[in-house]
Design a protein around this nucleic acid. Sequence first.
DNA 1: CGAATTAGTCTATGTTGTGGACTAAATATT
DNA 2: AATATTTAGTCCACAACATAGACTAATTCG
Lengths: 390, 390
Amino acid sequence: MSQAVRHDAMRARNLALVLGEVGARGAVTRAALAEITGLTKTTVSKLVGDLIEGGLVVETGAVRDGERGRPGVEIRISGRSVAALGLEVNVDYLSVCVVDLARTVRLRRTQAVDNRAAPPVDSIARLGNLAANVVDEAVEKGLRVVGGVLAVPGPVDRTTGDVRNAPNLGWRDVPLASLLRHFPFPVRVENEANLAALGELWFGSGLPDFLHVSGEIGIGAGLVVRGRLFRGAHGFAGELGHVVVAPDGPQCRCGGRGCLEQYAGQDALLAAAGGVRGQLGVGQVAQRLREGDEKARDACERAAWALGVALSSAINLVDPGAIVLGGIYAPLFRWIGDVVGDTLRARLGQMRGTVPPVIVSRLGAEAAALGAAGQVIEQVMADPAALLHT
Amino acid sequence: MSQAVRHDAMRARNLALVLGEVGARGAVTRAALAEITGLTKTTVSKLVGDLIEGGLVVETGAVRDGERGRPGVEIRISGRSVAALGLEVNVDYLSVCVVDLARTVRLRRTQAVDNRAAPPVDSIARLGNLAANVVDEAVEKGLRVVGGVLAVPGPVDRTTGDVRNAPNLGWRDVPLASLLRHFPFPVRVENEANLAALGELWFGSGLPDFLHVSGEIGIGAGLVVRGRLFRGAHGFAGELGHVVVAPDGPQCRCGGRGCLEQYAGQDALLAAAGGVRGQLGVGQVAQRLREGDEKARDACERAAWALGVALSSAINLVDPGAIVLGGIYAPLFRWIGDVVGDTLRARLGQMRGTVPPVIVSRLGAEAAALGAAGQVIEQVMADPAALLHT
DNA sequence: CGAATTAGTCTATGTTGTGGACTAAATATT
DNA sequence: AATATTTAGTCCACAACATAGACTAATTCG
């Protein structure tokens, strides 16, 4: 519910407005900020003063742009004080990163571990260590880590922050509170597919509207509309893997039949490409494709067709601005992108003038960890006043 | 983009906050409002004073609740001053209504016309007349009509307000500006499925989260999340009719195959129920069903199964809080509701703890016109200051 | 009937943004 | 080279709005 607006809330909003404009434009003078925001020069000066004092922005010297008149002083987001921690547990690796307020990745560590084999407690402890080291390093660099978000591959209970069920990890009711309380700043938990989409938003293509598809063992999707994540009524939106491709298709572990996952999930794709389960990785499939392996090519085509079918349903329902393929689809994009696009055009082209473009994510496995850190940064950008007064 | 907050914006927001609280609770005293909103009694008194002066709320006498202390004076939304016009063009009828700020329907007129047969200009003129009469009557009742929204069955260009293509009506590039400028208040155009969903939100079940399915010739859906309509990147979200049921199913007019519309659209349903096209209405099908007609029953079952399949994809993607069936599915609900529910449970039950309930819309053909008027009311509630200062 | 209690108003005060005057620092003009 | 013009940023008096607490009003309890 929206809250009452008092003087402090007014100030908080205007601070966020100015900070957001600085972030969006990279470097702006106070005078330009006044014109953009509609606030007076006086007010902008005061707001910028507070932001500088809080270390959120810095003056970067006068601009000599050849225009006449006194040159303005450019203001930029400061990357030297506030930072955020991103954490990720996934099936076969752990990853942490520290991102500063200017959205520069300052530190990152990835550790290959089979988290299905290890008990959850061990994985959590290992991640905790990794993160503690990275945070120490960040502090040495003069950064102030103000928050963290942990990405887990499965639905997260939005109220408690616990993981109810992460089938890919084999986790069930894992209480993450112990890990999260380990730090001197708040740490939240969030679904990995959602965070990968946000990673793409803040560190990838820069598009404000898209559906990001994370192909892994399951297939998740994160919908970003006008720069904001769509979560649905309970926070479970984006289960693209169980969208129907063929209602009488192969049995799926979800209880349904013919779900996308059975055609384009990692296991289905690898099996169709001719690997014994667990013996073949996506990297090797890409290698075989480069060598012209027909079985691998057919497997990709089938997966891409199914992905196109499921995405055509998704586009009809949620009308995304673009489709971004990530996860295992990124390395395979050369062999699936066109088939997906063709399938979409065949099913949607007549109805809509334009079909959303299908593009590949340039972010690798770190997408979710980046999105996690980015979410903290976003929170600071949305309410800088919260940081200034404490 | 969020705007700068000045004193007037602060006031505007607090006015909206107070008005919204009055609307949500039906009747509240100033003292209760102060406690609810966190504003001081002084401020609430001033805000309420302005709202009373503007005719948006009224005092309805002291409450004698048996508690000790001075009794408070209850404030309610006033239905006696501000009102909104809802208009709807559909395939076989025109409909207009006037709704007051208390969301009471004050006037409504429906006219059966075959708008496919008539040229668009005639339909528009007829609707204009109908609306002008109703507005006159409203004015006689002392109401001040502050805005209107027109519902059309097809995608609307959000920027110009023109209808690009309404296949069910046979309309193409119909410029509605002439009709819309006819009134001394602004009139916008909006998609009928979206407005039907909003009608359900404000005049129906009262749920804040649901997917409303408008079964007509096409099948549209409107997604409401936390009391707000989800539109997607271009405003074309909710095309449930072209969600894939079977990728190699019957050819659809959209260019795809096996779209939901081919199984559960009005034409498909009536054809399967044994009618020659145009000879049988939904009402008669319901009659036959009551009489135990097997062909009609099988047709409904097949449509319901397909609807369940498509909805399971939709639920996986957008995670709605409930499914509300409207349009032609409302009179047929007795014969399709269970099959839809069973299909959903079979496909989703294992994955999610609970499957969204499938309920029937209690609103009839007026859903969209009500939603249209409701949208104007909502706008007033969201920014009452805009009305007060002019 | 007076004490206690709650509703609502009134007045002085504080916080924030505004608008215009003012100072500062550059380029253009003479 | 000196002066005018232009733009950036600061300063100060003022206005808008919310706050806090005193005050008045209207009720129930004892």
